[in-house]
Amino acid sequence: MLKGWHGWIGTFTGVALITVAMLPLAALTVWALARGRRATGTTPTWAWRRSLAEVGIVYGTVPWVWMIMLPGDRAGAVSGRVSLVPLRDLLTIATAGPLTAAVQVVGNLLVFAALGFLAPLRFAALASVPRILALAAGCSVLVEAAQYVLRLDRVSSVDDVLLNAAGAGLAALASRPWWRATARASSDRLRSAPVPGR
């Protein structure tokens, strides 16, 4: 059992349990947002899609960022470490064993996967794989910089940025059929809308 507040907010297990416990609240938030949008005249499909995308981005990203911002055993006692040579950390992880390497790589790919999957569905301006890659890379750089500045006893690595961005890009490709259909539907609605003065 987790004991004390640190066991809940300061460990991977605690964060995972809190994330699961927050699922009903996330679902309720989606419902409330969709209902509010429907009350303002938004079609049910668009109301639900937008609400689900917004909540999904937050719910699917915050726990991962929370986990990678957890301090190590010597946080505050050691200065930040930086690794700017691409693929060096990945090669080091590979020597630690296949299971450790798989967990590290998959974990990094998932950090901004929800953002990559859902942001193009919600924001038309982000309906592009290069834009999602740029957004995820920018967010990842901010997280890595925060790890360094806050002296969390973690390595701020360019490989983490590459994996985080790659995960978001792959997720965007997975949702591409839906956001391309959404973009086409939006352009069709604009073309069919009556022009004022005609």
Rank of each mutant, 00 (worst) to 15 (best):
A193M: 11
G80M: 07
P196L: 08
R50F: 09
V141G: 01
G56W: 02
A21P: 07
L109A: 09
M69C: 06
S192D: 15
R151H: 14
L115G: 04
A102S: 15
W179T: 00
N164H: 10
L152P: 08
D160Q: 10
W48A: 14
S128L: 05
L17R: 13
G97K: 12
S156L: 03
A125W: 06
P44T: 10
V78I: 15
L133R: 02
R176G: 02
A127T: 05
A193W: 14
R88S: 08
D188K: 08
A94Q: 07
V58M: 09
G138C: 13
G7E: 15
A171M: 05
R122L: 13
A101D: 01
G116L: 10
V106P: 02
D153F: 07
W46T: 14
M1K: 14
V20T: 11
A21F: 14
V105R: 05
A32I: 04
G72M: 06
L91W: 10
F123H: 08
A124D: 11
R74T: 03
G56A: 02
K3T: 13
W5Y: 08
R131A: 14
L170S: 01
M67V: 15
A96Q: 07
I57L: 03
M1H: 13
V195C: 06
G116I: 03
V158F: 13
L17C: 11
G167V: 04
A145W: 12
S83L: 12
R50N: 12
V15Q: 01
S79C: 01
P194E: 00
V55L: 01
P130H: 09
L150V: 03
R184I: 04
V106M: 09
T61H: 07
D160R: 10
A101Q: 07
S128G: 06
L33Q: 04
L87E: 03
P44L: 11
V141Y: 08
S186A: 15
Y59A: 15
V85T: 15
R49M: 01
V161W: 00
D159P: 04
G169C: 07
G72C: 03
T19N: 14
A183V: 12
L110V: 08
V85S: 10
R189Q: 12
R154Y: 11
A34S: 15
D73K: 13
A34Q: 05
L52Y: 08
G14P: 07
D153H: 14
T40A: 14
S186Y: 05
S51C: 05
P71C: 11
G10Q: 04
W48C: 10
P86V: 08
V85K: 13
A166V: 05
A165G: 02
V149G: 02
R50T: 08
A166I: 00
K3F: 15
A165C: 09
A172Y: 04
T100K: 07
P71A: 10
P194Y: 07
L110P: 00
R184L: 10
R74E: 10
A165K: 06
G72D: 04
L2R: 14
V111Y: 06
V158G: 08
A32D: 07
A174V: 01
R180H: 11
S187N: 02
A75C: 05
G10V: 09
H6P: 04
Q104W: 01
G60E: 02
L2P: 03
A32C: 07
W31A: 14
R81G: 06
A146M: 04
E54H: 03
L121Y: 04
L150D: 07
L121T: 04
V103G: 03
A47G: 05
L150G: 06
W31Y: 11
A134N: 05
